[in-house]
Nucleic acid binder design. Structure first.
Length: 375
DNA sequence: TAAGATGATTCGTA
DNA sequence: TACGAATCATCTTA
């Protein structure tokens, strides 16, 4: 309970000649009133108010003696003695002297550490949790948070949105567990800190504990708890990574384009059958219309050209269908976007080979103008 | 469950 | 770098 460290201060004499210049506190205390004890300051001590230096020393000696014996007493006795000591007229002076000694001997710095810069790993974890939408404010409605949120392969088909919601709900679970645990840790940290602070404050009545030391102790506690929090963050990040990788694997699964998207692409393809090479702009436009990426449009046209060429007969019916559609649209004065070149009945690639690889379609091909009015 | 359809990937070419 | 061709992996359908 009552620590004796300030009393066993082994530093050099503090110049106040309080008999603290010995390792053995008790000896020092016992000898505090001895006249032989050297006083270097000739009575400057913080013990002013006493007229007689000798008397003062004896007084102090008595107090210290009482402090030292307090641990041997029963609790009640000790409490009473503590109270008496706290009320003793010499107490404030003695206390301030003890504090000073402690400062000088560096005892209060025992556990002091330089303020550490923020752990870069922790910063990374924090950033990641923020980016994933686990930490920070909850993101409403739309995305599953952060960059990992929306799937984009094959557009936002109903299937993928289903998958998406699954991802979202799992992420929400992780988020909720993370926040619950975090709250627990924070609460525990606060409770423990308060407890320790109370203890120290209580002790500071009987031993020299400065507010600065209490602050340091609090900082130490916070460091300990923050290392636990780091572990929590690490685990959470791992969980998110696992979830993400599973989700990404799922996204790799091929999804058919929506019927509507296929229709748009087919309309373009058959209405440009003589030259089914959409320009970059046209691809972008188609991608936008279909809710897919430009490269998916490119893939689609690549596959379509090959497959069409390989089996024109098989696609004849489809070609007729879209040609009719196109013609109908044109007749209705609906200057539909997909009715540009109206090769309509031209169901075959020119020479069965379009331009061929040696002569790719001119970039500024005529159809690109058509595609521009395609919205 | 097998066959066909389809989107993606890889590789060679100009 | 865009394209054709081959191929893979998955989805759809009967």
């Amino acid at each position: 309970m009552l620590q004796q460290q300030p009393l066993t201060g082994n530093g050099p004499s503090n110049g106040r000649g309080l008999g603290m210049n010995s390792h053995t506190g008790m000896h020092a205390l016992n000898s505090a009133h001895q006249p032989s004890q050297h006083r270097s300051d000739g009575g400057d001590s913080g013990l002013e108010g006493t007229e007689n230096g000798h008397e003062t020393r004896r007084d102090i000696g008595d107090i210290l003696q009482q402090i030292m014996t307090i641990t041997d007493q029963s609790l009640d006795e000790a409490q009473a003695k503590k109270h008496a000591l706290n009320c003793h007229r010499m107490k404030p002076a003695l206390f301030s002297v003890l504090c000073e000694i402690k400062e000088k001997t560096g005892l209060s710095m025992r556990n002091a550490q330089e303020e550490e810069p923020q752990d870069p790993q922790l910063v990374r974890l924090d950033n990641m949790l923020l980016a994933e939408g686990v930490a920070g404010p909850e993101k409403g409605g739309g995305g599953a948070g952060g960059r990992g949120g929306a799937p984009h392969s094959g557009g936002m088909s109903p299937d993928s949105s289903l998958e998406h919601s699954d991802y979202k709900s799992k992420l929400t679970q992780i988020r909720s567990i993370y926040h619950t645990e975090l709250e627990k840790y924070e609460q525990a940290c606060t409770e423990f800190t308060t407890h320790v602070m109370n203890l120290l404050r209580e002790q500071s009545r009987t031993r020299p504990v400065t507010p600065r030391e209490i602050e340091r102790m609090v900082a130490i506690i916070h460091r300990k708890f923050s290392s636990i929090q780091t572990q929590l963050k690490q685990s959470t990040c791992e969980a998110v990574m696992i979830l993400r990788s599973r989700f990404l694997d799922a996204r790799r699964k091929r999804r058919n384009f929506s019927k509507q998207a296929t229709e748009v692409l087919n309309e373009y393809f058959y209405s440009h059958l003589s030259n089914p090479y959409p320009s970059e702009e046209a691809k972008e436009e188609l991608a936008k219309q279909c809710g897919i990426t430009v490269s998916q449009v490119s893939n689609w046209f690549g596959n379509k050209r090959i497959r069409y060429k390989k089996n024109i007969g098989k696609f004849q019916e489809e070609a007729n269908l879209y040609a009719m559609k196109t013609a109908l649209g044109a007749r209705q004065g609906d200057d539909s976007p997909h009715t540009p070149n109206s090769t309509g009945t031209t169901m075959k690639p020119a020479n069965g080979n379009w331009q061929g690889r040696n002569s790719p379609p001119p970039r500024a091909s005529p159809h690109s103008e058509h595609s521009e009015n395609s919205d």
